[in-house]
Simulated scan of single mutants.
Amino acid sequence: MGQTPEVAALCGQFLRVWLIGAWPLVAFECLKRFVQAQGIMQASTWVMAVVAPLHMFNSYALVWSPTLGLGFIGAPLATAISSWLMFFLLVGYIALSKAREAWGGFSLDCLDGIWEFYRLALPSAAMMACSWAAFELVTFGSSMFGPVTLAAQACIFAAMSITFQTPAAIGSAAATRVGNSLGQGKQRRARYSSYVAIAMGYIVGMVCSLLLFVNGHRWGYIFSDDAEVVALCSKLIPYFAAVQTYDGMNGLVSGIMRALGRQSLGALMAFPSFWILAIPIGFYLGMGPMGLEVVGLWLGLAIGVIAYSLSMQCYVLFCVDWRHEVKVCLERLARCSNPKADESRGRLAVSSRSSTDSLIDSYGSLA
């Protein structure tokens, strides 16, 4: 698709080995949400604290070691090993901690309310896929300008992955706290948790942007000694630093949207932001008459990221009726409570609706 034969061949080799660790990585993410939903936020942190130094050692041993080193193919192998380690360690944590108490065992009862689950899960996947696919398409476009541009883009993506983690972690914590507060009928606590999370996200984002902007001319040297790669990386860093705060806020506010059960709305906001604004504008600026190449791709991506971020924040800050969200949450819980017959299902729904307002009155005044 326009890449050099060497880039295409190495990409295929990398993916064939990386796929060994794809399933445990997915399972680890699911288990991480399982414990976070119980308010256990430290489990995945401890797992990563153990795996990170092992990953560093394996990366050196499998790539650079004179005895065990495999060269390029050692990098995806080290990643696959780390994925399996994270999975097994988190399973062990769950088995040996109170988190196992939330596991009811394997049963066909898990299929009850499955459509309610997928009604939330599929839009959530679409919401994330819209943004990530746009970023990956920018990498694809960068590869068409040669290996130097692709290498510089990889350096920028490494910066993006690092700076995205803290806002995303705040978003995960906010999703748990807001979701639990709504389920308890505490609309004021849910609202304040959202506002505090957004404020923290901006503080973290601005600090990261400042650090990237100040140290942009050094960033490329972490990954390459090639003067052209470092120079292009230094040229691109200011564009990324300008948009990084909003990119982090996307991950944070997406967590709040998931807690509200508004994944469908998030997906509807993501699609036009990235696929009507970011990608067409970026590819026009990069490959059109202006010929800005990778800079044009990043300018288009910046427009989409900022539009998506501001639209979600405006919705959370100005459009959410938190008392109504409590009512919707309690009704959703009633629908998913697995009544044994249609008659009892109807009684439960009516009972839930009649008690919803009293729950809001009881808890709505609490912080």
Rank of each mutant, 00 (worst) to 15 (best):
V294I: 13
V214I: 06
G171C: 05
Y202I: 12
M249H: 08
M127R: 00
A75F: 04
G146W: 14
V350Q: 14
I81N: 09
A227N: 12
A102S: 07
H55Y: 02
I237C: 11
R218D: 05
G266L: 08
R191K: 03
G21D: 02
F87Y: 05
Q13S: 07
M144A: 08
C208E: 13
W46K: 15
A231Q: 06
W18E: 01
A334I: 10
A9S: 04
E6Q: 13
F34L: 05
R33P: 07
S351M: 05
G346S: 04
P147H: 08
A278D: 14
G220I: 10
A80Q: 03
L299K: 06
C319A: 15
S309N: 06
Q263H: 09
G39M: 05
V35K: 11
Q42P: 09
Y118E: 00
Q244V: 02
L348W: 03
L285N: 02
F157P: 01
I276L: 01
V7C: 15
S352G: 07
W298N: 07
T79I: 11
P272C: 02
A121T: 11
L137I: 11
W103C: 11
F157Q: 13
G296C: 10
I360C: 09
G179I: 04
G346F: 03
I360E: 15
L89S: 13
I162L: 04
S362G: 11
A129D: 15
F213N: 07
A168Y: 01
G220P: 12
G69D: 04
V316W: 13
P66A: 09
S107G: 03
C336K: 10
G364P: 02
V350W: 09
I73S: 15
L211K: 13
L77F: 04
S124W: 14
L10Y: 11
L211Q: 10
G105Y: 14
G364N: 06
F72C: 13
P66L: 15
L292V: 05
V207R: 05
C208R: 03
R353M: 12
A227F: 14
D109A: 06
S131N: 07
R323S: 10
M160G: 09
Y221C: 00
L330S: 10
I281S: 01
L120F: 14
M257I: 04
A158K: 08
A241P: 02
Y221I: 01
E293F: 15
P272D: 14
R332P: 04
P53A: 14
G2L: 03
A190N: 03
L120R: 08
S142K: 13
A199P: 03
Y363G: 07
P147F: 05
L90V: 15
A341N: 09
L70Y: 06
T67A: 11
S365A: 08
A173G: 06
L285R: 00
